[in-house]
């Protein structure tokens, strides 16, 4: 089957923000076609102010999005607000990479619990929406960065945050090669 990837953004930066963009690039380098979703009802930057409302508006997109792309059995790559797609990924049995998922939200966690395909959770201990212990109870595939915030930035020189980005990319690539499209 043709490899494909569905990229679902957070509430701020769109699907070409650093974390989803490089993760999707990793899939593309492995021969996948990439579909970038843009929220139709979430204004960029607004999600942080009213998460409950953003989740509701995001959900309006997700049903049709998965009806369209689910049958191709894509790898789902989602950042933050995009983790509201967890129940849909579970329903379609899709592997996924959840970048700084909203682990404080019940329906996201329920969706992750219901997953049958492998998934990677990426988060930082300085992110209020992250819960490392919960993450490790949900999947054996967890990449956690000490001191990283919701954007996966760490304190100190900015170069340290770029090193984190490099480590996330390496973790994403290792997960894809081992569990999504195994290297023969």
């Amino acid at each position: 089957m043709t490899r494909s990837t569905l990229v679902i953004p957070g509430g701020t930066g769109g699907p070409m923000a650093p974390l989803p963009m490089y993760s999707a690039d990793a899939a593309e380098l492995r021969g996948a076609t990439v579909h970038h979703h843009w929220w139709t009802q979430v204004t960029p930057g607004s999600a942080g102010r009213d998460l409950a409302s953003a989740l509701e508006r995001a959900d309006a997109d997700l049903g049709p999005l998965f009806e369209e792309h689910g049958p191709a059995r894509p790898l789902v790559i989602a950042k933050s607000l995009g983790s509201s797609a967890a129940p849909y990924a579970a329903k379609w049995g899709l592997p996924a990479i959840w970048l700084t998922p909203i682990l404080t939200h019940e329906s996201v966690v329920a969706g992750l619990r219901a997953a049958t395909a492998p998934f990677l959770l990426v988060g930082g201990t300085a992110d209020g929406l992250w819960d490392g212990e919960l993450a490790r109870s949900l999947t054996p595939h967890v990449f956690e960065v000490d001191g990283a915030n919701h954007g996966m930035y760490v304190d100190g020189p900015l170069q340290a945050s770029l090193a984190v980005l490099g480590d996330v990319v390496a973790a994403v690539e290792a997960f894809i090669d081992a569990h999504v499209w195994p290297v023969a």
Partner: peptide
């Protein structure tokens, strides 16, 4: 022209300025 102001080549320089 596409992709907004949060792509990596803008997000990190902007973060450097914010800091």
């Amino acid at each position: 022209g596409m992709n907004g102001p949060m792509v990596p080549t803008l997000a990190f320089p902007a973060e450097a300025a914010a800091r």
